[in-house]
């Protein structure tokens, strides 16, 4: 019994992180719709999108790439803010390119934020 508890505790302690890339997306949404939803009513948008793994379709506005990954912004109705997609690996995307990005939505901070992104 003690052993079972110890093994369970050990497995819990070392359980893996959420596998966003391997998880099936719960929804597909357009970048502009996602952004407008957040701008209009952040709390309601969080009800719908927060913590979801989703696919976002949009157009690349810019890509800041370093050796530690890429931060890609998808264009929206706003001139400056949009959907910020955080990639743990550098990706080769150019502004104007149409993309489908899968990521984990962590909320709204000037931009809508997707982390652990992969290209679809």
């Amino acid at each position: 019994m003690v052993l079972v508890v110890a093994v369970y505790a050990y497995l819990q302690y070392n359980k893996p992180h959420r596998d966003v890339a391997g998880e099936e997306a719960s929804m597909v949404v357009q970048a502009s719709v996602l952004f407008d939803n957040y701008v209009q009513d952040e709390a309601a948008a969080n009800e719908k999108y927060l913590d979801q793994v989703m696919v976002v379709n949009g157009t690349v506005r810019n890509n800041e790439t370093s050796e530690s990954g890429s931060v890609v912004t998808l264009a929206t109705s706003d001139d400056f803010f949009g959907i910020k997609c955080d990639f743990d690996e550098p990706v080769d995307l150019k502004s104007g390119q149409k993309v489908s990005v899968k990521g984990h939505c962590t909320g709204f901070a000037f931009d809508v934020i997707l982390v652990k992104c992969t290209l679809q």
């Binding site: 819990q12 302690y13 927060l50 901070a109």
Partner: peptide, 16 residues
Amino acid sequence: FAVTLKSFVFEKALMQ
């Protein structure tokens, strides 16, 4: 500054 708390990454998934 604006920070989304779900973007914090911990070494251990359980801590996160």
